[in-house]
Design a protein around this nucleic acid. Structure first.
Lengths: 132, 132
DNA sequence: ACTCAGCTTTACGTTAACGTAAAGCTTAAG
DNA sequence: CTTAAGCTTTACGTTAACGTAAAGCTGAGT
C-alpha cells in the first residue's frame, strides 16, 4: 500500500517558502480545492503539484486568473471539437509568449555578460593602479 | 552629418503599442529623462533604447524599481571596487533568476506539448467517430 | 479668428496579490 | 485545567502600475 502523503497548510508554506495567507488566497481564487478534516485544510500530492505549477506560472509573469483558466481547461472534459480547438489556440498563444521570453532572456544575458566584462576590466585596472 | 532621430511621446507610444500615460509614468519613476522643447517632451534614440529595455524587463517580470536600479548602476561611474563588486553581485543574482526562468519555460513547454498532443489525439478520435 | 489634434499637469480611481490584525476554535503537552 | 502552537474566518490596509477624467496650452490649417 502506498500511503499518500498529506500536508497541513503550514507544512506546505514552509515547503514552498510562501505564507499560509497566499495559499488560502489561491484557494479563494479557486486555484486550489483542498480537502477538509474538521475545520482544517488537508493537502494531497495533487494539491502540492498544483501549487508548484502556480508558483512556476507566477515566476513567468502569469496572473492568477490566467493560471486558473489553464487549470480549468486542463480539468475540463475536452470532449467537443470547439473546446479542443480553443485549448490548442491558447497553448499556441502561451507558447508564443514563452518564446518571446526566451528571446528576452537571451538578450539580457548578453547584456549582463557585457556589463560583467566591463566591471572585471575596471577592477583589474584598479588593481594595477594600487600596485604601482 | 547623421541627423539624430527624434520622437514625440505619441510616436513612441504607437511604436511600442503602449499609452502615453505609461511613458510619462516611467519618467515620473525616473526611468526616462527626455529633453524638453518648450512644454513638450522630445525623445532621442537613447530614450527609445531605454524604453525598449524597460518593456523587456517588464516582460520578464521585473518591477520598475528593479529596472531603475539596474539603469542607475549602469549609468553610475563604477569607479570604486565596492561599487563594482556590488554590480557584479547584482548581475549574478539576475542571472540566477533568468536561469530559473529558462528552466520554468522548458518545463512549461513540455507540458504544453503534452496537452497539445492529447488534444490532437482527441480531435482525431472525434473525427473517426463522425466518419463511421 | 477659430478649430482641432496633440501635448501638458493635476488628481483621483482601479486592480491584483497579497499583508496584517483581530478574535476564536482545537488538540497535544505540562 | 490551562497554556501554546497551529489552525480558522473576517475584514480592512497596502503597493505597483497604470487608467481615466478634467482643464488648459500651442502650433498648424482653414
Amino acid at each position: 500500500m502506498t500511503q499518500e502523503q498529506q500536508y497541513s497548510i503550514g507544512e506546505l508554506s514552509r515547503l514552498f517558502d510562501i505564507t499560509a495567507r497566499s495559499i488560502r488566497f489561491y484557494e479563494e481564487q479557486e486555484l486550489l480545492v483542498p480537502e477538509r478534516q474538521g475545520q482544517s485544510r488537508i493537502y494531497h500530492l495533487k494539491d502540492k503539484v498544483r501549487l508548484k505549477l502556480i508558483l512556476r506560472g507566477k515566476r513567468l509573469g502569469f496572473s492568477l486568473a490566467e493560471i486558473k483558466t489553464l487549470f480549468d481547461l486542463y480539468d475540463t472534459n475536452l470532449n467537443s471539437a470547439p473546446q479542443l480547438e480553443t485549448m490548442l489556440a491558447i497553448t499556441e498563444q502561451k507558447r508564443a509568449v514563452l518564446n518571446q521570453q526566451l528571446n528576452d532572456i537571451q538578450m539580457l544575458m548578453i547584456e549582463l555578460d557585457d556589463v560583467e566584462a566591463r566591471c572585471k576590466d575596471e577592477l583589474t585596472e584598479l588593481q594595477r593602479g594600487n600596485n604601482l
